[in-house]
């Protein structure tokens, strides 16, 4: 994993300032989406060898949740955007 992550708000910062949550490719289902949709949301994850989008939190920085797109084999980081802005830029 990159030793530095380019936070869109704070610039390149050490990875240790961030907390990773995991797969950002899943959206929270509607409350009435049914048992299976919720099982998929809570328990199943994309786990690709290669490009992957994840939620990272700049915990010791601006405290924004970010979407980090990176490679799970080379650990290269391709893009970092604010989670709330994902629809516009990701």
């Amino acid at each position: 994993m990159a030793s530095l992550i380019a936070c869109p708000h704070c610039g390149p910062r050490p990875k240790e300032e961030f907390t990773v949550r995991g797969d950002a490719g899943i959206s929270r289902p509607a409350p009435d989406a049914g048992e299976n949709a919720w099982y998929v949301y809570v328990y199943l994850r994309d786990n690709p060898r290669g490009r992957h989008k994840e939620h990272w939190h700049h915990t010791s920085g601006c405290r924004r949740w970010l979407i980090v797109e990176r490679d799970t084999v080379t650990h290269a980081v391709y893009a970092v955007v604010d989670a709330a802005a994902q629809g516009e830029t990701a």
Binding site: S3, E16, V20, G22, N47, R49, V73, T74, H75
Partner: peptide, 14 residues
């Protein structure tokens, strides 16, 4: 664990 998804069989200095 380092804490992030990886298939790289190598980790971080931190």
């Amino acid at each position: 664990i380092d804490g992030y998804n990886s298939y790289a069989q190598r980790g971080n200095l931190a």
